[in-house]
Amino acid sequence: MTARCLRDESASNTRQIIALSISASLVFFVADRSAVADNGRGAQLAAICASCHRLDGRDKGIPPIIGLDEESLARAMQAFKSGERSSQIMHVISLSLSNEEITSLAHYLSSLRMDTKRP
């Protein structure tokens, strides 16, 4: 494991020095993540999209999917699914989604806004 390699670099140091250097470099942020978790079906489906599209809409070279209305998104996904719109990647992705999932996904994506801080 790479972890082992990195540790080897400092193997000659004493444990104390390691502890000092590691501790000094660590900052533990104590987060208050008490807001409502975003883990519903739409968010889980949108996680698929986030592997290629930014969910803050700031894409370059990849078409943005944020800022579109629900109907347009659903129509686009159905067009990719049927092959009416050409894209081998989107064809494979949309084929794996049921019509119900496409509806949920479109609903969720249309609720996001540019710069929304989502994964």
Partner: peptide, 14 residues
Amino acid sequence: MKCWTRRKIGCFAG
């Protein structure tokens, strides 16, 4: 749900 708020209420380094 749009986004959550996050508040850094402390940190530790030592």
